[in-house]
């Protein structure tokens, strides 16, 4: 099992070292919340801030979400778990950030929990990886020997549904949406300003939180995340009404993987699949 205290110590130590030496100006990590179970994303900007850093099984935030908030060129250290490191890679691919401005503090971990349900989050709601894909410093022992479960296994049930039942399922889910946009805001890949849903000309969707606008918002958002979503599951955890957005994102990721033979956020050399092409792409994918 992961030694959370040890990682917390290492995280503090590294943060302190990096801030002290002036190597970075911000350390994006996790901080104390109003109680143990509710830690918060935290930006440490001085050595004094380091005391506030924590790490426990509820720190499932994807800190990559905050990277684009700092001006280009800011030296940032960021704590990354597996999916978070993939988000960083994806953002590098999209030229939102540069590797040379970053120090990745890798956290290998198993047993992160969703504070709302106290369930362990694994391949069901996230990509299910345990070790960061890219890091400069590793803050714990790499996790090995875990049974490898495909993050797409959860989809089977939904893929097997007949299309009318699946439509009904999604319609019921989207009807619950109150359009608070927490999903978009929690997502590390949703950095557009303005987001299509906020545009008035053209107005892509109704503003009212009811079926037509909700469906348009979600389908388009799934499309915008195609080949970019790194399956951290933050969108679904952020949702106050628990819409299982991750299912749709996983499905799109799976399709992209099959069609384009590339997994998002795995290498900084890659280009996002939808801003790329191969002449030999087959027309079969259109069928």
């Amino acid at each position: 099992m992961t030694d959370f205290k040890k990682i917390e110590e290492n995280l503090k130590k590294e943060a302190k070292r990096l801030l002290e030496s002036g190597e970075v100006t911000v350390v994006l990590a996790y901080g104390k919340g109003f109680d143990e179970k509710h830690p918060m994303p935290f930006a440490a900007k001085s050595v004094a801030d380091v005391d506030n850093i924590v790490f426990n099984e509820y720190c499932n935030y994807n800190m990559a979400r905050y990277l684009v908030r700092y001006p280009q060129g800011t030296k940032i250290a960021i704590a990354v778990k597996a999916a978070d490191s993939r988000a960083v890679i994806q953002l590098i691919q999209e030229e939102k950030i540069k590797k040379e401005n970053l120090v990745l503090l890798g956290i290998p971990v198993i047993g992160m929990k969703n504070p709302k349900t106290d369930e362990v989050i694994d391949s069901k709601t996230t990509c299910g990886m345990h070790n960061p894909v890219l890091y400069d410093v590793l803050l714990g022992e790499e996790v090995h020997g875990q049974k490898i479960v495909s993050p797409y296994d959860v989809l089977a049930e939904y893929e097997a549904m007949d299309k009318d039942a699946r439509w009904q399922f999604w319609k019921d889910q989207f009807d619950k949406c109150i359009r608070c946009y927490a999903c978009r805001k929690a997502c590390p890949m949703c950095y557009c300003d303005p987001c299509f849903i906020d545009q008035n000309k053209p107005k892509w969707a109704d503003k009212a939180p009811q079926s037509p606008g909700n469906i348009m918002y979600h389908l388009t958002r799934f499309h915008h995340l195609a080949g970019r979503c790194i399956d951290c599951g933050e969108c679904s955890r952020a949702c106050p009404v628990d819409i299982p957005l991750y299912l749709f994102h996983k499905k799109v990721a799976k399709e992209c993987e099959e069609m384009f033979n590339q997994v998002s956020g795995m290498s900084i050399e890659d280009k996002p699949v939808l801003v790329n092409f191969r002449v030999e792409d087959s027309d079969k994918i259109l069928e």
Partner: peptide
């Protein structure tokens, strides 16, 4: 506010937030 995502979850669940927008669909 360093952690705040600037979403609308807090205000939408709040019993006292009353801001609204008027729109034509």
């Amino acid at each position: 506010s360093s952690a705040c995502l600037s979403c609308g979850a807090c205000t939408f669940v709040c019993p006292n937030c009353y801001c609204f927008d008027i729109c034509d669909d």
